[in-house]
Design a protein around this nucleic acid. Structure first.
Lengths: 172, 172
DNA sequence: ATAAACTTTCAATAACTTTTGAAAGTTCAG
DNA sequence: CTGAACTTTCAAAAGTTATTGAAAGTTTAT
């Protein structure tokens, strides 16, 4: 395959997969474009390459920066802002896990705590099933919370390296 | 909090969180309702409890069954079908991981393979950055693939049990 | 074979999300 | 200060996804 074709395909595919991960299609496409660009790109270049509007580029780049996946780069002597993506995919994965934990698990835990003390007779089947279910979800979430914190804190190589050893995967 | 209030809140919250996980709101709400119901419910009961249409219940229950999170239950002497959800939250998590792997990672891996051999001079910076990026994503995906397979195959207790020990989490 | 009890489908429509582009805002060199 | 170069905002339009409900289909009891 030629580079231009492969590039277009990668951008389209990454965009498609992104939608499964709570990242909108355009945001994922911009991310893909920046991932495979050797040098930082300006908003105009992104507009041009993906045929999307200025407002759309601005909005989605801002969100990628929020997610910690893209950085602004100041090029000396240039007035424009340029953007570049973290190329190390392990760091990208770690960053995504970190953000999703923050946006999902950290919000869920207090909600579950609140739900865990319903008034009522424990011998009532409906009450018992409810509290048991909530408590199981709580235990699970607390565990996941601690595990993810450890993973996020851990050094990149250690992080999945140890995990792989444990599960019998082979490091290259 | 009273049971009825807690129930309503749990259903609303689970629905909200579900949307972050590729599960639509109604589907997650039905799942929540079945999780906290001591006995299997009929389509009519789900319609009634959640104030949604028959078609909507049917569609989403079917999808929950596809995901392996809900089962049909035949109650002897009853014409209707009843539905019940897996209550063990570790099994639920395992099932979700399994399905998402099937729907996402398994589709991604062949796409990456195809993209990994672009023609062109490796000394060309654009070609080099592209192939390096794709190859890094491939290594990562292959590793994730093997790890998830191992986790899915593993026995429930072992699965996160060992993981927790490794990462210093505390089992209850 | 019939009809009642139930389940499934699907086209219309409602709800939600994304995109655009023009206007407003900001920054900076001269 | 001024105006050119750039970035950001936001309301309207387009696009996407979910929901309804009535019609079609299926199963079961008699």
């Amino acid at each position: 395959m030629q580079l231009a074709e492969a590039k277009a395909k990668f951008i389209a595919d990454w965009g498609r997969f992104g939608t499964n991960w709570g990242i909108n299609r355009t945001m994922a496409q911009i991310h893909a474009l920046l991932l495979i660009s050797p040098d930082p790109l300006s908003a105009d270049e992104v507009m041009e390459e993906l045929s999307i509007s200025r407002g759309n580029v601005n909005m989605n780049v801002r969100e990628l920066i929020d997610w910690g996946l893209v950085q602004k780069v100041i090029v000396p002597g240039e007035r424009k802002e340029f953007f570049t993506a973290e190329k190390d995919i392990w760091k990208v994965a770690r960053q995504i896990v970190k953000e999703r934990k923050k946006r999902e698990l950290d919000l869920m835990i207090p909600v579950l705590k609140e739900l865990s003390d319903v008034e009522g007779d424990k011998r009532d089947k409906a009450v018992k099933t409810f509290t048991d279910t909530i408590n199981n979800i709580r235990k699970f979430s607390d565990q996941a919370d601690r595990t993810l914190d450890t993973m996020i804190r851990a050094d990149e190589h250690w992080f999945l390296g140890s995990l792989m050893k444990l599960f019998g995967g082979k490091r290259d």
